[in-house]
Design a binder for these strands. Structure first.
Lengths: 102, 102
DNA sequence: TTTTCATATGTTAAAAAATTCATATGAAAA
DNA sequence: TTTTCATATGAATTTTTTAACATATGAAAA
């Protein structure tokens, strides 16, 4: 069974495994937002926000464009949110189901 | 914007962010497999396999049943593979697209 | 009921990721 | 062309994950 392709998949999941980054992506769904705004929205230090955005950008989940002095971020491939939605659905199933423990 | 639900999602992604665990899930797609077999398939120590399986089980991604002395694992909710497939698709897009660097 | 064998668990060491604080950059505004 | 301001980057620290080895468990087979 060839499972080489799973390495890349695991890397994407690593990106998505952080709540802050998820929040960023979700917030960027329908509008571009600059670093300072994101910082307020997420209630995080500017530096923390920049660091996370840089990770997302490195992996081409977001892209930037400058407006005046600000850098606005946008989703590079909105399809990524489909993956997030699937995970949300999954978790709500599990919670509702309470298959095992509790 | 309410983003509380993203915490659970991030936890699922955390589970999926490890190549070994992904390989396990994919291998379990169409048949149950016991620990020893998995150990051979993935070329990993038994203990490592058990540890990872235990994480997956704790989060209800797999379940077990005993046959003789062996413990067979199975997918608890095959839907989880849909999420994996979406990620695979995404990564192949990005690779093909080579949107930015290189 | 003793032994065997597959699997699970505990623990520690190593690696990777996240957080924080300080500082650098560099384009835009003055 | 100097200053300002938003953002990026660097580096040290802490936290989280992974990996590895040793050992415990416990059901099944003898």
């Amino acid at each position: 069974m060839n499972t080489n392709y799973l390495k890349e998949a695991s890397q994407i999941f690593k990106l998505l495994s952080n709540e802050i980054r998820l929040k960023m992506l979700v917030n960027l769904e329908d509008k571009d937002i600059n670093v300072n705004e994101l910082s307020k929205i997420l209630n995080l230090e500017q530096s923390a926000v920049s660091h996370q955005l840089s990770i997302l950008k490195q992996h081409q989940l977001v892209d930037t464009n400058r407006v005046g002095k600000s850098i606005y971020y946008r989703l590079d491939d909105p399809h990524i949110l489909d993956i997030v939605n699937e995970a949300v659905q999954h978790s709500s199933h599990v919670i509702r189901g309470k298959k095992h423990g509790e």
